[in-house]
């Protein structure tokens, strides 16, 4: 029989070339029974949103270490809005200063995970937000 599965897009916007963290998260979500789509490095906001649409994901996980999060994260949220996508949640992770987090959350990012996060916290948050 079919089983509904949580689908997650793990994307790396911006120009930094480090995806160790993204891969660790992708792997952890996979092991939690989710379908994880990983797109590789250096994605534009447009590519990320287009991929999320085609893959019909429940969650977009953005990983960034370049410092451009205050620019790129809201850009992605804006594109989602323009495409009238209201049924996906966006979470973020990477090297993100504490003081930027309130602003990002206000923009619509559901949660920000910084280095040292237990992957179980990410899994729990997703499972809590996405009921399937």
């Amino acid at each position: 029989m079919e089983e509904k599965k949580i689908r997650v897009l793990i994307a790396k916007p911006g120009l930094d070339g480090h995806d160790r963290g993204a891969k660790v998260v992708a792997r952890a979500l996979r092991d939690a029974g989710m379908e994880v789509i990983y797109t590789g490095l250096r994605q534009t906001p447009k590519q990320i949103v287009e991929t999320a649409i085609q893959e019909d994901v429940d969650v977009i996980g953005l990983s960034i270490l370049s410092g451009a999060h205050t620019h790129l994260f809201p850009e992605i949220l804006k594109l989602l809005k323009e495409n009238q996508i209201e049924d996906m949640i966006v979470i973020g992770g990477g090297v993100i200063p504490e003081e930027d987090i309130p602003e990002l959350k206000k923009a619509g990012i559901v949660e920000i995970f910084t280095p040292g996060t237990d992957t179980r916290d990410i899994i729990n948050l997703i499972k809590e937000k996405i009921k399937k």
């Binding site: 089983e3 599965k5 992708a26 792997r27 979500l29 996979r30 092991d31 939690a32 029974g33 989710m34 379908e35 994880v36 789509i37 990983y38 797109t39 590789g40 250096r42 994605q43 534009t44 447009k46 590519q47 287009e50 991929t51 085609q54």
Partner: peptide
């Protein structure tokens, strides 16, 4: 686990635009 890592798009990045 029933999970999957779907990574074919990594090789098709330019196509997503």
């Amino acid at each position: 686990t029933g999970g999957a890592l779907l990574g074919d798009r990594i090789r098709m990045q330019d196509l997503s635009a």
